[in-house]
């Protein structure tokens, strides 16, 4: 009995590593086809490229584990970036780098607070609620600062997004890893983490246990808001400017990354390491398409197919490991 259980646990552990195997396989394939991929510069690029979307993905994961969803991450990122940059230009005479950091975090918290309030207090379905707020943030990103692009000249600011420590470690990647460790600790060592998993698995049971769900839910959305804020900071400091069109494909990439990384859409399941691997998979796919010289028109198609295959393998292996 116990031997069988151990065998099953081992299989489960192995199963959890599936995304990692997929990632390693992808890197191997690209390296075989194009040796340029095995240079330090391309790994530096990769580390820099995963950072902003990775932090947003960690926030998205937090909400997904609690059984919700946050669709405001994309346009929210543009809105936060525009707000911070606009306020930054108002204080141009003082060293605005701290203002920039502070405003991105505060705006992130406010965004999370609004999301959390609407979802937890007004009890509107997360998908609908954050869809509406997504549209609001899109509108705000155009109104704030008249929708005009703000360009940063301060090299200290660019350093946050473009700088490298010891010549190889991108600063944004360091921030990404720090946020990852922090979220891992919150999820595994704190009450908030415990309740996040519990709310996602069985909200009714948590409620019956007499826990004030509303407060925790708001807190969970604030966590996601802060992550969007840090994502915005890393994005504007990377591109050296803020513009309303910088939402890009952040939201979909972040959600896809979390799901590839094993986070369950129905809540209760997900972990930091999986999400980090998921983000790498998403970024490596689009990088690979450039290395393979795939015509641009076909790129979305291939990206979709790879995500589909990654999730498919995961789902299939899930069934396989649990049934044997």
């Amino acid at each position: 009995m116990s031997a069988g259980l151990e065998k099953r646990n081992n299989k489960l552990r192995l199963k959890r590593q599936t995304p990692l195997f997929i990632l390693l396989f992808m890197i191997l394939v690209i390296s075989i086809f194009n040796k340029e991929f095995l240079t330090l510069q391309s790994f530096i690029n990769l580390m820099q490229q995963v950072s902003a979307v990775g932090i947003v993905a960690l926030g998205a994961m937090f909400v997904l584990i609690a059984g919700g969803i946050d669709l405001t991450a994309g346009y929210g990122l543009a809105m936060i970036g525009m707000t911070a940059a606009t306020i930054y230009t108002m204080f141009s005479e003082i060293n605005g780098i701290f203002i920039l950091i502070l405003i991105t975090l505060i705006t992130g918290v406010i965004l999370g607070l609004v999301n959390g309030f609407v979802v937890a207090k007004l009890k509107i379905i997360p998908f609908i609620a954050t869809l509406a707020i997504m549209s609001v943030t899109k509108g705000l990103s155009l109104v704030i600062g008249g929708g005009n692009m703000v360009v940063f000249k301060n090299q200290q600011i660019i350093f946050i997004g473009q700088g490298k420590l010891f010549g190889f470690l991108p600063v944004p990647f360091l921030i990404f890893i720090l946020v990852g460790v922090l979220i891992h600790l919150i999820l595994t060592k704190t009450k908030l983490g415990l309740y996040t998993y519990a709310i996602g698995s069985n909200e009714g049971a948590v409620r019956f246990a007499g826990i004030r769900i509303v407060n925790y839910k708001v807190l969970i959305y604030i966590m996601a808001g802060i992550c969007t804020g840090i994502g915005a900071l890393l994005t504007i400091t990377k591109i050296g400017m803020a513009t309303p069109s910088m939402y890009g494909s952040t939201l979909l990439d972040a959600l896809a990354a979390t799901i590839i990384g094993g986070t369950s859409l129905s809540g209760g399941r997900g972990n930091v390491l999986g999400t980090i691997v998921g983000v790498f998979i998403i970024v490596v796919v689009s990088t690979a398409l450039v290395y393979f010289n795939v015509p641009p028109e076909m790129q979305d198609f291939f990206k979709g197919m790879v995500i589909f295959i990654a999730v498919g393998i995961d789902a299939y292996s899930n069934k396989y490991y649990l049934n044997t």
Partner: peptide, 20 residues
């Protein structure tokens, strides 16, 4: 490579093109 008029997407595109 497309940028979808998004600076961050454009930046990633040129990074990848330069390394490849």
């Amino acid at each position: 490579q497309p940028s979808n008029w998004d600076p961050a997407t454009g930046l990633k595109a040129i990074q990848d093109i330069m390394s490849a």
